[in-house]
Amino acid sequence: MSSDLAVKTREPDPLPPEKAPFFSRPSGKIFLIWLAMTVVGVLIGFYAPHHLLPTMLSVEGRAVWATVVLLTVLAAPVAAFVYGVGFYSLVAWRQRGYGQSDEPPPDGPPLRGNSGLTILWLVVSGVLVVVMLVWGLAELASENATHPNSLQVDVTGQQWLWTFSYPGAGNLETRSLVLPDNRTIVFHVTSEDVTHGFWPVELGVQVDANPNVVTTIQATTNKLGAFTVRCSQLCGLYHSFMYASGAVVTPQAFAVWLHAHGASALTASDVARVSSSS
């Protein structure tokens, strides 16, 4: 190659000497980026659910909320580290003068194994996974616990409507799902045709509605309010229309609602038994 075609290439910037101040070194700068991104991630973890999740009306819904917060907070420092190193590398260690030479970039310094870093990485990852596993198993166990005075509700999905039946109230069947507060509700879910997904959003539970199969899932209401039941499985032409309205009401209001919606065959004691949580 003739000397006039030789293109000057920048040598990699020399790393600051070890005795340079920590925050002047790449590791220090990456640490600052990581710290800032972690703080942002943790703040997102605490505040984003207020905007992304609905107001939960059940114990299980609150557990979903708490799980979203926990996992986001746990993931924040990990994601911040990955993105922090990535962004810093892209900016500080990019190849300068790209396109000005046919010469390949110079090799970087050789990297050797780092036992301490490997152990730290494995331990931190292991702890995070174990925490998530224990948390998940505990939540799952609480959702499957049996409650003696639970309210049974039969849920039937059909293209493209939900219907709800109350076996303890003379099989009163309705299009809206009204539930008493402070009560464990056991949903027996099935389908008349194809697979649907029973998803009362604000109750924080979800299960498939399969034809010829009854699947059980439960939720314990703990807050008054309205909620929406949606279908979570793409079930056909009017899947997007397949929703129902619901509400968690006081036990007294629930008793009134039962009477008002045709539970005329019920005796007063029947209504009291179905609507009472004690």
Binding site: Q159, E192, D193, V194, P211, G236, L237
Partner: peptide, 8 residues
Amino acid sequence: VAGFGGPM
């Protein structure tokens, strides 16, 4: 499927 195919 359950009579809900075709025209349905």
